[in-house]
């Protein structure tokens, strides 16, 4: 995502390609369309939502209703890297609290917050389905299992 004087500059050809791919599918195109746009821009700006509404012929209120419903869709700016730390039963039993504390310490933010430089967003999630690798975190699309506070430090240093 580029940002110039507060105006967002998108990769317009990519946005156009996504809209073309999903228009004509009606409502069934909405969720994949929002997911693909978010892949390009990181979050769903009001302008993008407007475009989706026009091209897929869906009321804007419905679009926000859908975005609000799903935990993985964002209508506010988020960091380029989203760290989702699992804190459910299996990960808790394996020490997720120490892992989460290390993430907080390194990033200087709490769950649900984004670093001021826009690089990282930290989230705490219910069971992510990798209990055999507990404690774990999803870093964007990467799966990081068997985490320790030391492993967290190594992971963030490498980024």
């Amino acid at each position: 995502m580029n940002q110039q004087d507060g105006d967002l500059v998108y990769d317009y050809p990519a946005v156009e390609a996504v809209l073309t791919r999903h228009e004509g599918k009606g409502r069934a195109g909405l969720l994949p369309c929002l997911q693909d746009l978010q892949q390009i821009n990181g979050w769903l700006t009001p302008e993008l939502c407007q475009l989706v509404g026009q091209r897929l012929n869906i009321p804007i209120a419905d679009i926000y209703g859908v975005i609000d419903y799903y935990a993985l869709l964002y209508k506010e700016p988020v960091g380029r890297t989203i760290i989702r730390v699992c804190d459910d039963i299996a990960c808790y039993l394996a020490g997720s609290e120490e892992v989460l504390a290390e993430f907080k310490k390194w990033l200087g933010i709490g769950p649900g917050e984004t670093t001021p430089d826009g690089k990282y967003t930290l989230e705490v999630h219910p069971c992510l389905g990798y209990c055999d690798q507990a404690p774990m975190a999803l870093v964007n699309q990467e799966i990081h299992g068997h985490l320790t506070p030391e492993a967290v430090a190594t992971l963030l240093e490498a980024k």
């Binding site: 009606g26 069934a28 909405l30 799903y70």
Partner: peptide, 19 residues
Amino acid sequence: AGAYVCGEETALFESIEGK
């Protein structure tokens, strides 16, 4: 897109239908 209840069959249909 991150909703446990979408594993319920009819909720899953609603989700595919873009709702």
